Simulated scan of single mutants.
Amino acid sequence: MKIILADDHALFREGARHLLQQLGGGDIEVLEAATCQEAIIHADLHEDVDLALLDLHMPGVTGVECVVHFQAAHPEVPVVVLSGSESRPNVQAVLDVGALGYIPKSSSSQVMLSAIRLVLSGGIYLPPLVMDQELNPVEAAIASRLASRAQMPCCLTERQMDVLKLLAAGKPNKLIARELGLGEGTIKVHLAGIFRALEVNNRTEAVMEAQRRKLL
């Protein structure tokens, strides 16, 4: 699994890189960037990037500009914003331009990992500072859109569907990893995302539920 980590503070990147390794048992490649442009270049050079973590404020861009520029260049890559700010307007702004999550840097390591896993499984992460307060009309519209998305019959990413099809063919993790050119740790992360998205507990139930939803 490849994750772009863009932040202009090297010390933060170092800590975040070690934390991200926990997602796939060491089978994680973190592509570090100090600017938004470097993040876009990484995505240009690596077509198999699974996620981009972008700091809200980096040199050369202001506010949500990096999210806008990155998604314009690579709309297929999910984006999660990292920020030292816990401002509700900032959260609303990044969601408005298509980010799938907003993680305050004050979050615990466990919260950060859970948020990233949620996005990798096809969900959207909203911090408690938004969920615990009354929503204004724009935020209410966003929440309604997310709820509709959660009710959609197909809730898996393209990569998760690749894994699910091979899973339905009865192939073990090692063969799935080999066919998709991924590590076994990455396959485990995708399987966990599939189980959460389909609300099942094991491989057999996942295949049965996918068939019920006509995903296979």
Score class of each variant (00 low, 15 high):
A16V: 02
G170C: 07
A52Q: 01
G60A: 04
H74V: 08
L19Q: 06
I103W: 06
P75E: 09
H69K: 14
L118N: 13
F195N: 02
A169I: 01
V119H: 02
V97Q: 10
P104C: 11
E29A: 15
E14D: 13
R13D: 10
I4H: 02
I142M: 08
V68L: 11
E134H: 08
E184C: 12
V163G: 07
G98W: 05
F195V: 08
K214E: 14
A140Q: 15
C154I: 04
A141R: 14
A73C: 12
V67W: 06
Y125F: 15
I28T: 15
S148R: 13
G101R: 03
G25Q: 13
L20T: 08
V49M: 09
Y102H: 03
L95H: 11
T62F: 04
P153D: 07
A6R: 06
A150F: 03
E86W: 00
A39D: 08
A33H: 09
A197P: 05
L113H: 10
P78M: 07
L23N: 11
Q133I: 00
G25V: 12
A73Y: 07
R196P: 00
H190P: 01
S108I: 01
L175S: 11
L198P: 06
S144D: 10
R212K: 13
M208W: 01
V97W: 10
I176A: 04
V81A: 09
K174C: 06
S114Y: 05
M131A: 14
D8H: 07
L156F: 04
